[in-house]
Nucleic acid binder design. Sequence first.
DNA 1: TTGTACGCGTTATCAG
DNA 2: CTGATAACGCGTACAA
Lengths: 336, 336
Amino acid sequence: MKSRINITQIAKMAGVSKTTVSRVLNNKPDVKAESREKIERIIKKYNYYPNAYAKAVSNKKSNTICAVIPHDASYVFSNPYYSEILRGVSQMTNANNYQLLLSFSDDGKYVDIAKEQRADGIILISPSCEDYDQIDELVDMAMPLVSASKVLNSQFVCHICVNDSKGAYLATEHLLNLGHKKIGFINGPYNLASSRDRYEGYASALKQKGISVDETFTQEGRNSLESGYESMQKLLKNVNLTAVVVSSDLMAIGAIKAVNEAGKKVPDDISIVGFDDIPFAPYVNPPLTTINQDAYFKGMAVAEKLIQIINNENVEYRTTMDVELKIRESTTRCKA
Amino acid sequence: MKSRINITQIAKMAGVSKTTVSRVLNNKPDVKAESREKIERIIKKYNYYPNAYAKAVSNKKSNTICAVIPHDASYVFSNPYYSEILRGVSQMTNANNYQLLLSFSDDGKYVDIAKEQRADGIILISPSCEDYDQIDELVDMAMPLVSASKVLNSQFVCHICVNDSKGAYLATEHLLNLGHKKIGFINGPYNLASSRDRYEGYASALKQKGISVDETFTQEGRNSLESGYESMQKLLKNVNLTAVVVSSDLMAIGAIKAVNEAGKKVPDDISIVGFDDIPFAPYVNPPLTTINQDAYFKGMAVAEKLIQIINNENVEYRTTMDVELKIRESTTRCKA
DNA sequence: TTGTACGCGTTATCAG
DNA sequence: CTGATAACGCGTACAA
């Protein structure tokens, strides 16, 4: 790139020192109105802008926030849940004049961003147990940290999560109320705290009604559409179910595909309830009954908290957002 | 954040000068094996990493690429087409050890990123005519630039686009072949070059068959689901159509919703073909006939070109990717 | 093989 | 009000 003009040159042209130029750049007092105007004119004329990284070095502050999604990019971008979180995050960082650095990596390489001091703070989106070593490292560095889901290994990591167990409970209860008794569960990866909580919600709803939990009714998926498809195929092969709780909408869409291919119908033969309420949930076939969580709001909240922590403000370190059952057309009364 | 160790301190502990430490950090020769080992041990011990921004200032290279989406975040993140592009971009930047900076803003503020010298190059994703002033500014700064869609105002901007007119032509031809004669068109915003090309493809397919183009059959949408919904409502109110070409899948999904609410059926009453082939296209109701473009590959290609330009390699400045008609179930033979 | 001295573009201190 | 001067953390001619 063409080498751009710098503060020294501006100072020279204005016949003042760098210091004075710096003063007007940062809206500081103690500059004669006359000088200020002259400097401003020259800045305008040469379309000058201070170099952000030189500022970062000098100020020890980069005005950059990094959103880390410790999974590979295809996992992330195929799932609108993450898009919604990022939408919220970017809205908030924009509003506060922070730049947004994005990092995907399933290999923990994102810790380098902290070591290299590229960001004033880090947002962890959906970290799993495998990330706990890296998280400890970040905590050791005293890097401001907020997670968009539960982090179990450290009380120094601020997190905002949704009430996962309640969500799964509501989903299961809904099916129970429709008369279903044989209810399967396609879970996300067990290395996510959310998956464990959701399982617990599912199990406790069953117990509540005196139905014993059958391990063969459960599958562990990877949260992708394909894995929802595969998990449902296994369930269809091995057990007789009339309904399934699926731990993400994306997997639910895959599950519906598997049901269709097996020559059955959703919801007539098998009712399905998802989790997340992604924007497409109302438009798939059939429109998905699901657990709504406001990922956009979560993204905003997470970014806002991080900025507060960076500014040394006091914040609540544990927040749980509520969830809600959204009934659409993928569930119906049990006909078996 | 806790202030971290720097190169000077490492040098001191190793009993050498910064220069020597810098040499081992950058894998340069002329360091005694013994010294190298000692320095490496200390680096390891203190978990030291050079400050990326100090390097950037010194090297005049930030190893950062900025992806600019000159629209507001909700426009972007609600559309999986952009997610797919970003997925490709991030894959490629990751592979080449570039950091990815993300910028949304419908107000042209992204030029600041160049002025502040935060990035070695910029990827423009779907810029519109309103961005041409800013693009000129970027060109003036000699900022390496690649666009993921056509840019008409400057031959200095490398771009990769898809064959939009062919796509719309194929879509329209498909409907014509099914016997449709009254074919509407819901376009994207006219300030996108792609929208103009798509209109042209639509019109030329009609002319080919001797069908005159009726302006009242066309609506200009904003590429969102809602705007597809509204545009279709207007078409339904004012004209009698048996088929509609829609310029994005997202709008197509909205259009289907409008058809349903009007008490009609897709495709029996109205055939619809979309554009983009987003990952959800096969799963909506009915599965969407659409024009496939490989946005993931486009994202990779765009990032790769930018990196080549940054490295002063020669690249082809004009690339057009092919498109393909994907027939699913939202189109059928005309019954009128 | 190593180190001195300076440069990168910025801000902060403090004396005038 | 202003400007030397040092500092931020790093890279690199050039000399030794």
